[in-house]
């Protein structure tokens, strides 16, 4: 087998990447998804530039321009206005992008890692190990994510670290199942028998043959999951179980708007900016990743089948 340089145009992975990008062009929804995701990624990276923080402070805490509870409408000082407690919304939603990525990527990455290990073990050893591990994933998956996460949070205490840990515990089973399924599928194929016959060690087979084949389904699942994870994290923060008050977390910011949805006397929508603005950011983030994940699935699924 010839060793083609990874970055040359001939390498199969690069060819596939190009193919995927080309396919994406054809569907308007996937272009929208990709665009949104790219924009948010840029936003997260450029957060310190767009909304500089004071040195010495935790950059994720929103700056306050006062202490009065009543939110103030957008002004030159506060581009998006302020929410309850005079927290600057502009700062909050921009750093909220970073916070969202932080928790989303962390949870998905760690869950995937745990899932690979557990799923790999289950698929490799089969038998009792497989049964036990699969029953465990079944039980965890029997619970709605939010509820199980709540149970864990009550044990760990409130805070972002708690919910991150809780979400990881809730999310890893679906990756374990995926990897195990792929593992079983691949090891049943002939080329693994051939590799074994040639004398490849089992570990080598796993790493060099099985794992690369599981990348596509993993990518699809991860991209679809980021939206869900961020949504659940926002929900937990909204309920007051996650980010502390004043933190740049979209869910937390929206919870600050709860007292103001009825507006002011004579102007029912006086405080629209407190819930519309952070909500739009959250919504667009989720929908962007969902569209991207959908598009990837539509494109990669037939490729997986064809393999």
């Amino acid at each position: 087998m010839s060793k083609t340089k990874f970055w040359s145009a001939e390498h199969p992975r690069i060819k596939e990447l190009v193919f995927v990008l080309k396919k994406m062009k054809s569907s308007p929804l996937s272009i929208i998804g990709l665009t949104i995701v790219v924009l948010f990624t840029l936003l997260a990276i450029l957060a310190p530039v767009l909304a500089p923080s004071e040195t010495g402070r935790d950059p994720y805490m929103m700056p306050r321009t006062g202490y009065s509870p009543t939110p103030q409408p957008p002004s030159p000082e506060n581009l998006f206005g302020t929410t309850e407690g005079q927290y600057d919304l502009y700062y909050g939603v921009i750093w909220g992008t970073r916070a969202a990525y932080r928790i989303g990527v962390l949870v998905v990455a760690v869950s995937a890692l745990i899932g690979i290990v557990v799923g790999g073990l289950a698929g490799y050893y089969k038998g009792v190990v497989d049964e036990v591990l699969m029953r465990l994933t079944d039980i965890i998956l029997a619970f709605p994510a939010l509820i199980l996460a709540m149970a864990f949070v009550v044990a760990f205490g409130r805070g972002l670290d708690s919910i991150t840990l809780a979400l990881i515990l809730v999310w890893w089973p679906s990756y374990a199942r995926l990897i195990r399924g792929e593992f079983l599928r691949v090891t049943s194929e002939d080329f693994v028998e051939a590799a074994k016959a040639v004398g490849c060690s089992d570990f080598r087979i796993m790493v060099r043959h099985v794992l690369p084949n599981t990348i596509f389904p993993l990518i699809i699942m991860a991209s679809l999951d980021i939206g869900s994870v961020v949504l659940t994290a926002a929900a937990l923060s909204f309920l007051g179980l996650g980010a502390p008050s004043g933190y740049s977390d979209w869910g937390q910011i929206i919870s600050l708007s709860r007292n103001w949805i009825t507006g002011a006397p004579g102007n029912p929508f006086a405080y629209w900016h407190t819930y519309i603005i952070p909500g739009i950011f959250l919504f667009l983030f989720i929908i962007g990743w969902n569209l991207l994940g959908d598009a990837l699935r539509d494109i990669l699924d037939p490729m997986i089948r064809r393999r």
């Binding site: 939206g227 909204f238 819930y275 909500g279 989720i286 929908i287 969902n290």
Partner: peptide
């Protein structure tokens, strides 16, 4: 599907 339920409710 992408709408956060709490946001939709609030809106």
């Amino acid at each position: 599907w992408s709408l956060p339920s709490f946001w939709l409710g609030i809106v």
